[in-house]
């Protein structure tokens, strides 16, 4: 039993990684991973929303009527998202400015709705806690690593500070969506290769 619960946590990191294996939410992932600071802000906001909404659904799943579950799920996602948006605007104005529309767009992020519909609605509180933590961490590490590569090689900076020598010509393709897709593809290939070799 203990082992099973731990598995719910670790599966989100690699084996069922929301971006690299389930391949959901690629749009926001591409859009915010151009800067490390944006990626950090997005991971925090996204993790908060995912964890709160999965837990809410697991608590209320017994009283949610099956035929109106989707609107209720959306309320459970939209409320924490709006809270994140308001808090960011009030306390981290510069971060919220650079993330633009992508914080409110967490509402329609397929990972959240996907996890809730496929997992939370059927599982209990502890399993949901583990699943949401794992998924949030799985999402975060991918976009943070992506953003580190894209910012250092695409802009020559790290967290806005110049780290590459002046002569280095930034590969601006990395900051554009095609470059991001290419990097994600490389990540997917690597992860699939590793997982295959292991099994």
């Amino acid at each position: 039993m203990k082992k099973n619960i731990f598995k719910e946590f670790t599966k989100g990191l690699f084996k069922e990684n929301p971006i690299l294996i389930i391949m959901l939410g690629l749009c926001s992932c591409l859009a915010v991973s151009t800067d490390v600071s944006n990626a950090l802000g997005m991971s925090l906001g996204f993790s908060f929303v995912l964890i709160i909404s999965e837990l809410l659904v697991s608590i209320f799943r017994k009283i949610i009527p099956n035929e109106v579950r989707i609107p209720i799920f959306l309320i459970f996602i939209a409320v924490p998202t709006t809270i994140v948006d308001l808090v960011m605007k009030a306390y981290f104005p510069s971060l919220s400015k650079s993330m633009g529309v992508f914080i409110p767009l967490i509402v329609v992020n397929c990972i959240v709705l996907g996890r809730i519909e496929a997992f939370s609605y059927k599982k209990n509180f502890v399993e949901n806690l583990m699943d949401s933590l794992g998924m949030a961490l799985g999402y975060s590490w991918v976009i943070i690593v992506l953003s580190i590569i894209r910012e250092i090689f695409g802009k020559g900076t790290f967290l806005g500070i110049r780290v590459m020598p002046e002569v280095y010509q930034p590969m601006s393709i990395l900051t554009s969506p095609p470059g991001g897709f290419f990097l994600i593809a490389v990540f997917i290939a690597l992860l699939n290769g590793i997982l295959k070799r292991r099994s």
């Binding site: 609107p71 309320i75 409320v79 809270i83 308001l86 808090v87």
Partner: peptide, 21 residues
């Protein structure tokens, strides 16, 4: 059910908005 959950959600947001705005 939808009505009650939406109302609670709205109240919560109103509360957060009241101190963030």
């Amino acid at each position: 059910t939808v009505f009650i959950i939406a109302t609670i959600g709205t109240l919560l947001l109103a509360w957060v908005y009241s101190f963030t705005s």
